[in-house]
Amino acid sequence: MIEFKDVGLVYPNGTEGLKNINVKINEGEFVVIVGLSGAGKSTFIRSINRLVTPTSGSLLVDGEDILNYHSGNLRKLRTKVGMIFQNYNLVKRSNVFKNVLAGRLGHTGTLRSILNLYSKEDKSLAYESLNRVNIAEKLYNRADELSGGQQQRVSIARVLTQKPKYILADEPVASLDPPTSHQVMTYLKKINKEDKITTIVNLHFIDMAMEYADRIIGMRAGEVVFDGPASEVTEKTFEEIYGRSIREDDLRGGADES
């Protein structure tokens, strides 16, 4: 369980990233955060694995306040929380398998990981993860030989290999075309259901949010302005969250193509 209690974040230059956030995310939920760019979605998500550090309030992950974590338990937290990025963040010159095995870094000692001494279990776990996103045949290809959608699937495999309890996805489909976007979201949803991994996804496409989310949280200017089950959400709700009428580019489309 993740619980935000009066969380606020002020950047060193004075901008307020988060304002007085109170949110509770339950086990196994598939939560989509929506909002315009700059609304604080990314800051919200990155607070959970402390890639950014909120400046006030408390943030509980499994009952422990992670805001006063330091290097040791921070690594443990990050091992428990997997993350998927908009730009896939793969090491382009390394092969797919090595990229996926990097998910085990938090579980592996420094020396063993540097000498590439992974256990057989770790290797089969990595291979199994690649299989689950149907890209195992690219095992020994270099990451930069893959298309965007394939790279994002590899990064999902990397997170799976990490065996996380939570998955954070920061705009995972923003750089992909509509059919590939749906494919990636489908994998995320499937993993959420099969492995009971709590998943939090940032999106700015309304139709995708409504299609995949169990619950939608709307943000504007660093504040939570909507929080409710996806079934209660209508286009009107989005107009309130965005503070303007819905436009063509707020929709990803292409749902039937995939």
Binding site: F85, N89, A102, L105, S155, R158, Q162
Partner: peptide, 10 residues
């Protein structure tokens, strides 16, 4: 990629 490795606990 460095951010990703940090996020996975490296």
């Amino acid at each position: 990629p460095l951010e990703a490795m940090r996020a996975s606990g490296g």
